[in-house]
Design a protein around this nucleic acid. Structure first.
Lengths: 224, 224
DNA sequence: CATTATATGCGTATAACACACACAAATATA
DNA sequence: TATATTTGTGTGTGTTATACGCATATAATG
């Protein structure tokens, strides 16, 4: 029995910057969907693990390097790829966009961040993949701490608040929010303040890395 | 580029019966791992969706038919299959064991339920797959209602309680548990009682199907 | 320099929920 | 008819969630 099923990986990489959630897309250099926008990704080599494959493709096509990508879902419907039967294992990651200089090569003409509210038409079934990834991203904040990968090393509390309001897409009460975050003991308050524009200067915080990953492992129940 | 990666699906089917959680395994008819126990599953045909493939394999190898299997995870590590590079998409399902007569055929010599605490040695990386499936099963009950697929149509409340104590592997307070379940409005109390053995006869309940699937969709926060 | 706008930072009161806990009711069995 | 066994309910207490008001520290404005 000759196997004609092919395997790809795709990466859904979210970035966050001052109230905007963006996703990393590439412009395809070759058919099918030539010049169309798609999630970075490509065929898995026979001698590499899935995680290695998705990291390699991401680096090749966008210049972004992430050492932790979480598996999202596997898409295998008939007809999802005009080249034939192609199954894709989708991965999921979070980064600070400004930490990378985008650089396209191999199969990609260009790599770019897109605000998730202003997406172009996407190749293959990538719209569906992205939809599921966004749901996962929003769901995550109720059972995991979030922000470490998305915020600067030092940040005012309002940055974290803004991240949550952006992800939740609604206002939250800062006082109660602060109480909850404080009770998690996941933030270290620094002896430093910033003052950008009008208003009282803000203390800077950083994530307590150890505690952060402990909570991530244990899971939290966190309804805002 | 010749593609040598092959794609399989595997099914982790859990059954529950009076305090026992079991999983459905098959005895392999062919090499590799001939006569070894493994999760039901096999190669995906080129012209079928992943869900169709896993349902077909499950039916062929065990006689069990499930129309809803949830995708669990995709396993693709190098060396997980001695036949070469084989990726497996694992699925996850819940049934009442007594609803089926097990019947092995095609690649399976035999199909059998195993108590998850008394598992035989498993082929491939199926031990790892099963471990992840069990974690998922236990995790599920904190964010989804559970039981509809596992209990009889009509059941005494103690059956539901027993299911939870079994899954959680600890005692729960029946009064508080009842309060929570009641507040979810997911059970309909029937005008019927059963009396098995000594003790006060128990009212029978059934799941309110509509409400059950609504909660499943919305998600619940349910710490026992 | 005084006033205003803007953002941060803290505390308290009330409602909802979680959790601990004890005893009555209805049957089978001896 | 007494005993064992199982079902079935209610209340108090502590913790957590939610709502809400005001003081503080700066920049911008006139």
């Amino acid at each position: 029995m000759k196997n004609k099923i092919q395997l790809t990986v795709d990466a859904v990489v979210f970035g966050y910057e001052s109230g905007n959630i963006s996703v990393l897309l590439v412009k395809r250099k070759y058919e099918p969907y030539k010049d169309g926008w798609a999630l970075p990704g490509g065929f898995v080599f026979e001698n590499e693990n899935l995680e290695e494959a998705v990291q390699r493709e991401l680096l090749e096509e966008t210049g972004v390097r992430i050492n932790y990508l979480e598996q999202l879902y596997t898409f295998g419907d008939l007809g999802r790829d005009p080249r034939g039967r192609v199954i894709s294992v989708a991965y999921f990651g979070l980064v600070k966009p400004n930490a990378f200089k985008l650089q396209a090569s191999t199969d990609a003409k260009k790599a770019e961040w897109f605000n998730i509210k202003k997406l172009p038409k996407l190749a293959f079934d990538h719209k569906k993949i992205l939809k599921i990834a966004i749901e996962r991203l929003q769901g995550k904040i109720t059972y995991e701490p979030i922000g470490f990968e998305l915020l600067d090393k030092k940040f005012p509390f309002s940055d974290l608040e803004k991240l949550y309001t952006t992800l939740l897409n609604r206002e939250i009460d800062r006082r109660n929010f602060k109480k909850k975050i404080t009770s998690l003991k996941v933030l270290d308050e620094l002896d430093e303040k910033v003052s950008i524009g009008p208003g009282r200067p803000a203390s800077l915080f950083s994530f307590n890395k150890k505690r952060y990953f402990q909570l991530k492992k244990e899971g939290i129940i966190f309804e805002i």
